[in-house]
Computed example of a mutant assay.
Amino acid sequence: MAERPERPGPDGRAGAGPDKGSPTPADPPRDPAALPPPRPLDAIDQDILRMLQADGRASIRSVAERVHVSRANAYARINRLVEDGVIRGFSARVDHERAGQGTSAYITLKIVQNTWRAVREQLRELPGASHIALVGGDFDVLLLVHTPDNRALRELVLTRIQAIPEVLSTRTLLVFEEQDLEPRG
């Protein structure tokens, strides 16, 4: 699911959309070639990023106060970070177990050479797929999934993933416990 980077809204919240703080519809993913070249972030930009990673709902006023700039400056900086593609969107951190997705697993895949893009698109459509990475090493792809239980995980791996013609093999690593790391500030 593609998320559109949202600009600060009129209510001053960094992740608010145009009408009374509600989210805006998702746009298709941006073409990386259309983005400006990466540039170094200064200390204020880095502080803003840490704040928004910890609380994507922080108001422009609170961001400005915490990083010691004017609200107009904070607003402009957040907009630039969005336009430059540094901020890809605003989202909620979910406790998957409490959301009924109590089984998590990393699945490694070996795939046919030069089929990454096709495989990636098929993996994106899988229920519970949370993170996909093309990696180097003993396998080609690392996939993080969240499912309601082991039976659903088994079904996902054996009937959905292994049915993808470009997938040569899989290995499933069951997650016993996980912890999202909070930004350090």
Rank of each mutant, 00 (worst) to 15 (best):
Ala152Val: 01
Trp116Val: 00
Arg154Asn: 09
Asp140Thr: 04
Thr147Trp: 05
Glu125Leu: 14
Leu158Trp: 15
Thr159Gly: 04
Arg154Cys: 00
Ile107Ser: 04
Gly102Glu: 10
Arg117Asn: 06
Val157Ser: 01
Ala99Glu: 10
Leu123Ile: 05
Ala129Ser: 15
Asp140Pro: 09
Ile107His: 09
Arg98Asp: 13
Asp138Glu: 13
Val157Cys: 04
Ile107Arg: 03
Gln122Pro: 03
Ile161Ala: 02
Asn114Cys: 00
Gly100His: 14
Leu126Asp: 09
Tyr106Glu: 00
Leu109Cys: 07
Arg117Leu: 07
Gln162Met: 12
Leu158Asn: 14
Leu144Phe: 10
Ser130Pro: 06
Asp140Asn: 11
Asp149Asn: 15
Thr147Asp: 02
Ala163Trp: 14
His96Glu: 05
Gly128Arg: 15
Asn150Ile: 07
Glu97Thr: 12
Gly100Ala: 03
Phe139Gln: 03
Ser130Cys: 09
Val112Met: 01
Gly102Leu: 07
His146Gln: 07
Ile132Pro: 08
Ile111Glu: 03
Leu156Asp: 11
Gln122Glu: 12
Ile111Val: 13
Leu144Trp: 04
Ile164Asn: 10
Asp149Ile: 04
Ala92Gln: 14
Thr115Tyr: 09
Asn150Tyr: 15
Leu158His: 15
Ile107Pro: 09
Gln113His: 10
Gln122Met: 01
Val119Asn: 03
Lys110Leu: 01
Gly100Val: 10
Leu144His: 08
Val119Met: 04
Leu134Gly: 09
Thr103His: 06
Asn114Ile: 00
His131Asn: 10
Val94Pro: 06
Thr115Leu: 00
Thr115Met: 09
Arg154Thr: 11
Val167Trp: 05
Val145His: 07
Thr108Phe: 11
Arg117Ser: 10
Glu121Asp: 11
Thr159Glu: 14
Gly137Trp: 01
Asn114Lys: 12
Leu142Asn: 09
Leu153Gln: 03
Ile132Asn: 07
Thr108Ala: 10
Arg154Pro: 01
Ala118Cys: 00
Val141His: 10
Ala92Ser: 14
Ser104Asp: 02
Asp140Gln: 06
Gln113Ser: 09
Ile161Ser: 01
Ser130Ala: 13
Gln162Ser: 03
Gln113Leu: 02
Val167Cys: 02
Thr159Gln: 14
Phe139Gly: 00
Trp116Thr: 00
Arg117Lys: 10
Leu156Trp: 13
Leu143Gly: 07
Leu144Met: 13
Val94Arg: 14
Asp149Cys: 06
Val94Ile: 15
Phe139Trp: 12
Glu121Asn: 12
Leu142Ile: 12
Glu155Asp: 11
Arg93Gln: 12
Ile132Cys: 05
Asp140Val: 00
Arg117Gln: 12
Asp140Cys: 06
Glu121Val: 02
Thr115Ala: 08
Leu126Thr: 00
Gln113Ala: 08
Gly102Thr: 04
Trp116Phe: 12
Asp149Pro: 08
Pro165Leu: 08
Leu153Asp: 05
Ala105Thr: 06
Leu126Glu: 10
Arg151Ile: 04
Leu153Lys: 11
His146Phe: 14
Gln113Pro: 08
His146Tyr: 13
Ile132Gln: 13
Gln162Phe: 03
Thr103Ala: 05
Ile164Ser: 02
Thr147Gln: 14
Ala105Pro: 05
Thr147Ser: 07
Glu155Arg: 15
Ala152Trp: 06
Phe139Ser: 08
Gln162Val: 03
Ile111Tyr: 12
Trp116Arg: 05
